[in-house]
Nucleic acid binder design. Sequence first.
DNA 1: GAATGTCCTTGACGTAAGTCAAGAGGCGTG
DNA 2: CACGCCTCTTGACTTACGTCAAGGACATTC
Lengths: 222, 222
Amino acid sequence: MDIRSFLAHTFLFHSFTDKETDLLTASTSLKKVSKGEQIFSEGLEATAFFIVVSGKVKIYKLSPDGKEYTLHIHGPGEPVAEAAIFDSMTYPASCTALEDATLVRISREGFLDLIKKYPELSLKIMSGYSKRLRQFVAKIEELTVKDMKSRLARYLLENSVVENGKTVCHLTHSKKELSSLLGTIPETFSRTLAFFKQQKLVTENDNTIVIPDPKKLKLFSD
Amino acid sequence: MDIRSFLAHTFLFHSFTDKETDLLTASTSLKKVSKGEQIFSEGLEATAFFIVVSGKVKIYKLSPDGKEYTLHIHGPGEPVAEAAIFDSMTYPASCTALEDATLVRISREGFLDLIKKYPELSLKIMSGYSKRLRQFVAKIEELTVKDMKSRLARYLLENSVVENGKTVCHLTHSKKELSSLLGTIPETFSRTLAFFKQQKLVTENDNTIVIPDPKKLKLFSD
DNA sequence: GAATGTCCTTGACGTAAGTCAAGAGGCGTG
DNA sequence: CACGCCTCTTGACTTACGTCAAGGACATTC
């Protein structure tokens, strides 16, 4: 596994020069985790941040009564907890592996030394940073649209691709995970998808949703 | 109005040296807006960001059917749209003045020139940046806790202060604004507050909520 | 092959909260 | 003062969605 070339292709560092990437790589290590394993916990000192190489991890918070709220699911290429590195000290949420996963660990200390030494990196990183902010804005927008039909329709359309002239959405998460991502529970998710099927707005086989008429489905995504 | 000393006290720049603050001030100007006036609109080129000096502005997005969703209300001292500056180009949301307001305008160009020239500023700014991220996380957490009693109880407790041995919460926004901030409508807000009053958990006069027993109210904030 | 477990689906039910509608109180303007 | 306008409140109604419960499909293990 070549950490260096992997980092060069992440959106956070893709504009780094070769030399810059080399220097960054020096502060990294590989971390392999098994399904369900804790990667970091809310409140602990943030000694490093991560980028997912393979597998999936979820960022979540626990409410006082122990319920779990998924904030994000991160897959390959996505940085995790980089925000905590510039911060005073601690992770703002917890993270576990949804499946066996490999991550690049980037040490806080090495990272901070690097951008102190090569300040031009900051702008490149800031730009990546602000992209993350946009994601949060989108997430908030998503949650504020409270109707499940809207949220699901929007999700399907945003994650669809055209294949052989057909608009399809490959479900890359389990439906249970998807439910959590969309801010609901499996039952409601299932019912909403069933509604779309019954209305002939979508058909499903083998975890792929076919959308015969995207414009029709779009009517629900308001 | 002394922009320079104002900037020196904002959380984004408070760790700047005097000289740094002077340089920053050179790229700024004052902007006065009347209630309801547009400050910037979603999608437009981001030529500047702002810091609120006085008054209040709201950041919002419009859904396709024209409904307005408040993302934030920013008061004195808070930066607005700084995220857009590092970004490709455009404002991710719109902003209007909730009341007559004064803002410091910081030009994109001048700002970027400055941190290129004095790169050590980046770290200081990044730290401020990540604080904003935390706010978004908190907002998401807030929205994901879907019960209004919880959200209102939490809001009251988080914004309460102890005065003369009493725990009180001064409502600094109108109840209509508060509703939007808490992700609901005035009717529901009113009913929920009425419920708390009826349960003797709070009393209200003159836009100040008195919380006789915070622990009791806290039971609702889960 | 029976048993156990997980994921997904479907049904019945309850409830929080949005919609619609009406009215009270405050405030500024003609 | 009367009138319109806005904020806030309250009531009646409706609905989306979460909870509880049951059952089917499928894989894994003994």
